[in-house]
Design a binder for these strands. Structure first.
Length: 231
DNA sequence: CTCGGGATGTACT
DNA sequence: GTACATCCCGAGA
């Protein structure tokens, strides 16, 4: 896919070729393009000969060394932020508040440390596995409150998909955690992502320290999706 | 529903 | 020592 540039952010309904949009080039677009266009795609986790399939419904773009909300603001390249400097498509997992993980995918080319924070996903396959990872119960035994909150936040979805720092720095298209335009259902059929939804642009969450950057509309979510963390 | 406090490990002034 | 791209639970409206 050609690089479509910044204006792509303001264009809905970009023509994406099925099965052809999540290649190496896709992740080398700028962070806002990736954040917006990764919505509706599948985040798939494989372990123990199992797969958990989810749909990405909420993201945030973090736009590198000039973004006061970003870990790499002022070109802060440390052991922690190193994966962000890798070419687009590398996994960056960090620990937040001592107990939760957050999943990011690097964007843009090498040494342009932009990224996308995955903030919420919708479960598609593996409800019981997800429920067990979150609450040590099967899905049917969850309260309605627990069902509603099962993957609607960056820490929650990492718990649900068993994502931790062991995945850090891996390449997303060559990992047991990956993002795809389709998944294989239990009948062996390919199910393609649906691009028919509206995208809402909103302020990013919990970045009060970021001065003017806290007001940028760099959070994106699928309109009316019930798994979005903050409406 | 909203609010507030506590939990908890690590990166980095 | 302090801050942190969070979550959970209980209290109160």
């Amino acid at each position: 896919m050609p690089y479509l540039g910044h204006n792509s952010l303001y264009t809905n309904n970009i023509a994406l070729v099925r099965g052809d949009n999540l290649d190496k080039c896709f992740f080398q677009n700028d962070g806002l393009y990736v954040a917006k266009n990764i919505l509706g795609k599948f985040l798939i986790r494989k372990y123990d000969n199992m797969q958990i399939v989810t749909k990405i419904v909420e993201t945030e773009g973090y736009m590198g060394i000039k973004d006061k909300a970003a870990h790499v603001y002022n070109d802060k390249k440390t052991d922690r932020t190193k994966p962000l400097y890798l070419e687009g498509g590398h996994i960056y997992v960090y620990l937040i508040y001592g107990m939760y993980h957050c999943l990011n995918i690097s964007a843009n080319v090498e040494n342009i440390p932009e990224c996308v924070l995955i903030r919420a996903v919708e479960p598609i396959i593996g409800f019981d596995k997800i429920a067990f990872n979150r609450y040590k119960k099967s899905y049917d035994d969850l309260t309605n409150y627990q069902k509603k909150n099962i993957t609607n936040g960056p820490g929650k979805l990492c718990m649900a998909l068993q994502i931790d720092r062991s995945l850090n720095s891996q390449y997303i298209l060559d990992s047991d955690l990956y993002i795809s335009d389709f998944y294989i259902d239990k009948n062996g059929e390919k199910v393609f992502a649906d691009n028919d939804f509206d995208v809402v642009e909103a302020k990013r969450i919990n970045i009060d320290y970021a001065e003017e950057a806290k007001d940028y509309l760099w959070r994106f979510y699928i309109k009316d999706n019930k798994y979005v963390s903050v409406k």
